[in-house]
Design a protein around this nucleic acid. Structure first.
Length: 456
RNA sequence: GUAGAUGUAGCUCAGCCGGUUAGAGCAUCGGUUUGUGGUACCGAGGGUCGUGGGUUCGAGCCCCAUCAUUUACCCCA
């Protein structure tokens, strides 16, 4: 006998988990809809070349590739094998599981450009797959909830993303969170300003560790990446930029005065702050974090990440603006910006903080217990009538011992049981048992309907 | 890729210095109660101690290997 098992980083969801997940998804869906986003879905798999090259080298490594059907190795000779897996990959795999929802969305936009009215706002809630090493809050299969708008440069979209995040977390009861915001143009500007054009990634990776390993260790790491002492000295003031955006931006503007890209980034961020404030959210939980870089290589403007405070968990939301994602598929000048809620992490956090409301109201309300075959038949039309009244009703599928049937009701937390024996069948007066209080009433069908509905 | 931790009943875990027949709680099933659950009491089933080798008179315990799980780093939602 083989023992069943699950691939690592994947999970089953039982009924109680699913009810909570659906609540979470529904809450976010409602808010996306309120902001004018409409749903689409795309296939679990994409052609491999659609996905590769969009996420950076690390990202490409983590894409699950699907082997070609049939004899996938038939066109490979020994010589090619020796060239290594990277070379033969395109020969043995043409498809892959999607790594995020943004790239498939860009692909969808390009393919449907003639039907789509721009700006196009869509949301998408589907699983994605990453061949990562699982650990706390990290899974190989997880659900993302994306809202993106493409076809406009307007910074209102960035501002509305921040508003949506606030509204979503408020609806979920999460109050201690912070939206970290940055702009890739500022990062480019910083690299320009110290004369390391194009090295913003190395820079960010190092700066990001400032809190963890300290300034000296960061400088040491940068030296190994060929940063000169002069460049590091120029960089130093940037390390100390702390406080609100109004504190940071004047200094930053001076530091980046020679980089037109950097200045543009500052200007954009300032406008986003202004729009958020004018939309009526003056005390937004937003913080400019110059060390925020984000690995996905397609971002070009604003970048976001949301951290929940007081909980040990990586970021639960991420997103940003991408100017050229549709461009790589042949549709230039369509800028997009979006946000992705990582609902598996949000689920874990809400569970930890006990924020899920009871989901009992979604489950069965009434269990009908028949004592024997005859009363079982009698119960059949009753079930239909009760269901027609909108009451979630079950008839225990076999007329077993009442003990057994009530145990089932208790186990499933069904609040009412309707007992039907010979006497009840003859009189049409049934015993309705309240499973919570233990009280029992003699009722007809109408009373049953009323009592059960009243309980809800 | 790097480093650590852990694998004992369906689940969570005890198991002393290496010593006789490997335990508990929960869960499951049965009974006390053949028309009444959740509480209580009684009882039952359930184990190749991850796997393979080694040391030893003797291994759940020590050593080696291997597999699996998990945590942290990197990176990410």
């Amino acid at each position: 006998m083989e023992k069943p098992s699950l691939p690592k980083g994947t999970r089953d969801f039982g009924p109680s988990q699913m009810l909570k997940r659906q609540y979470l998804l529904q809450t976010i869906r409602t808010i996306f809809t309120r902001y004018g986003f409409l749903p689409i879905e795309t296939p679990a798999m994409e052609n491999l070349n659609v996905l590769t090259g969009k996420y950076g080298d690390e990202g490409d490594q983590l894409i699950y590739k699907i082997l070609n059907s049939g004899d996938f190795i038939k066109d490979i000779n020994e010589e090619q094998l020796l060239e290594g897996s990277k070379k033969i990959l395109p020969k043995i795999s043409k498809k892959a599981l999607r790594y995020d929802l943004t790239v498939p969305f860009a692909r969808h936009v390009v393919m449907n450009r003639n039907e789509i009215t721009f700006p196009f706002k869509r949301y998408q809630m589907q699983p994605v797959w990453r061949a990562d090493r699982p650990q706390k809050g990290r899974y190989c299969e997880f659900m993302q909830c994306d809202a993106d708008v493409v076809g406009t440069d307007s910074l209102l979209c960035e501002a509305e993303i921040v508003l949506m995040i606030h509204e979503a977390f408020a609806a979920l009861g999460i109050t201690d969170f912070i939206v970290k915001i940055n702009n890739r143009k500022i990062l480019t500007g910083i690299a320009d300003a110290i004369g390391k054009v194009g090295c913003e990634t190395d820079l960010c990776v190092a700066i990001d560790k400032l809190d963890k390993i300290g300034q000296d260790a960061v400088l040491a790491e940068l030296r190994t990446k060929d940063f000169t002492e002069l460049q590091l000295t120029t960089l130093l003031p940037i390390f100390n930029l702390k406080g609100t955006h109004t504190d940071i931006f004047p200094t930053l503007r001076t530091l980046l005065k020679d980089s037109s890209t950097g200045l543009k980034g500052i200007e954009e961020l300032e406008r986003v702050y202004e729009l958020i404030e004018k939309s009526g959210l003056p005390n937004a939980f937003v913080e400019t974090d110059l060390t925020l870089a984000r690995g996905l290589s397609y971002y070009t403007g604003a970048i976001f990440e949301v951290k929940i405070l007081n909980v040990q968990m990586g970021s639960v939301c991420g997103g940003g603006r991408y100017d050229n994602l549709t461009g790589v598929f042949g549709l230039p000048n369509v800028s997009g910006v979006g946000i992705s809620f990582g609902i598996d992490r949000i689920y874990d956090v809400m569970n930890e903080l006990n924020l899920f409301p009871s989901q009992d109201s979604n489950a069965t309300k009434l269990l009908i217990c028949a004592f024997d075959a005859l009363t079982f038949e009698h119960a059949l039309p009753l079930v239909t009538k009760l269901r027609a009244k909108g009451i979630n009703t079950e008839l225990y599928p076999e007329p077993l011992k009442i003990k057994k049937q009530l145990s089932y009701a208790d186990d499933k937390k069904i609040p009412f049981a309707l007992l039907i024996g010979e006497d009840e069948m003859k009189s049409n007066i049934y015993s309705l048992k309240n499973m919570i209080t233990g009280e029992q009433f003699n009722v007809n069908l109408d009373d049953t309907i009323q009592k059960v509905l009243a309980h809800a």
